[in-house]
Amino acid sequence: MRHSTRIAVGPVQFRIGSDWRAPVAVLDRLYAGYPRDDTRPADATVRLFAARPWRRWLRPSVQIGGDFVIPDALPLPLSMGLLAAEMGMNLQVALGWRRHLLLHASAVARDGRAVIMSGESGSGKSTLAALLGEDGWRLMGDEFTLIDPAGGDALAFPRAVSLKNAAIAEVAARVDTARLGPLLAGTPKGDIRHLIPRADAIAAMHEPARPALLLFPRFGGEAAIEPMGEGEAFVRLTEASTNYVALGEPGFAALTRLVRETPAFGISYPDSTTGLALVEQLFAEAVR
């Protein structure tokens, strides 16, 4: 490919190739502070390419390819090349990673103990994680949390946080603009702007954390905390995992252990301030 870069996020080494310079340039800026080992072979490959040769120049549109692809995925305009790269990276991890149990969940940690937040997009799990990451917590990731089948620890996947819509202004108000990516307005997923995690979160990305709390947040409605049984947490997390079935018995063992050892709650919150307070309260009770 004409342009390429390498990015290590948590345990995954990516190789990203592109027909255009722009997506690679912006990735290089967002990931400049990440540890880089150019001799390490890549676990996953992403390709951003023009579906037809003339699409490199004429209304350029980015097709997402790589080791794993979604058939019939629609291309994105070149101005959204960064989103295409993010989607390509997510896809490789979601479909290809086998070393850990992969949860579609955000996570933060304090004193070596992790809070894992699982929910659909719109649940606010990414926003909560991003805000906690600016407020005394170590951001472990806004999209994926990995569970080590051997020891049960949570491992971080702190990619650049993908802030969406209202969360953009909320987070931008609290961070240095140098830590923000370009505003991608009007994408199929709404407005998107990336946040570079704090340097200490990146530096700690290989440090495991013991799960302390499983949360299933829901944005909107009155503040509420609802304890969740082990069985329901198990079922919800199998649904939130893209590789549970592929892992076989180690995945089963890791998940039963996780829900047995970790208290789980559904939480509702009307605004971020309330959400953060609920997390703080439940965490304090969990590690007491």
Binding site: G229, G231, F234, V235, F252, V259
Partner: peptide
């Protein structure tokens, strides 16, 4: 079979099929 009780649910892992049954 590997059978684990999780609260009022029982989860069962079948090592032949690699399937989990609730």
């Amino acid at each position: 079979l590997r059978i684990e009780a999780l609260g009022d649910l029982t989860v069962l892992f079948d090592r032949r099929s690699m399937q989990t049954h609730l």
